[in-house]
């Protein structure tokens, strides 16, 4: 459900605020994809209908508003970040060190809880604006 809240607290450029709102999951571990489909298929972000896609190959990865990169695909983040640089894609990782590979938000475990860290430089590179609330509630923010 964090993915949905990210969608509500990140501002995309005006040209990306029309059409479907695409959330992609890249990787074989489809639990996240299954959960997103179950909870958000058919719902909307503003006036944009949410569409959830699962990509198993890098070549399939197309323009997404949010791309969730599963743990085993973390090493491909650098390449994905470069190839999606003009797509204004919010890259979300789930492994330590993902921010340094180009992720904008990365899930981490602190204590017993799942938290997230943010890299604002990466966000700016993708022309995305992170709301202050999202930054304030993050475990850490790289500016």
């Amino acid at each position: 459900m964090y993915i949905y809240t990210f969608a509500t607290l990140v501002e995309w450029p005006a040209e990306r605020r029309t059409g479907d709102f695409i959330i992609g999951v890249y990787g074989e571990k489809t639990a996240v994809y299954d959960e997103l489909i179950k909870k958000y298929a058919g719902k909307s972000i503003g006036s944009q209908k949410i569409v959830v896609k699962n990509f198993r190959n890098k070549a399939e990865v197309k323009s997404c508003h949010i791309l969730y990169v599963t743990e085993e695909r973390t090493n491909e983040l650098t390449e994905l970040s470069a190839s999606l640089s003009t797509e204004n894609t919010l890259l979300v990782g789930e492994r330590s060190g993902a921010l340094s590979k180009g992720a904008i938000i990365n899930f981490i475990i602190e204590g017993n809880q799942q938290k997230y860290e943010i890299n604002k430089t990466n966000a700016r590179n993708h022309k995305l604006v992170i709301a202050d609330k999202l930054s304030d509630l993050a475990a850490s923010v790289t500016r």
């Binding site: 459900m1 964090y2 949905y4 809240t5 607290l9 909870k39 958000y40 719902k43 809880q113 799942q114 609330k133 999202l134 509630l137």
Partner: peptide, 15 residues
Amino acid sequence: VDPEITIEQLILNQK
């Protein structure tokens, strides 16, 4: 919980 939950509520529920 409501899938369209706020982030504050999400964090509180997690806690």
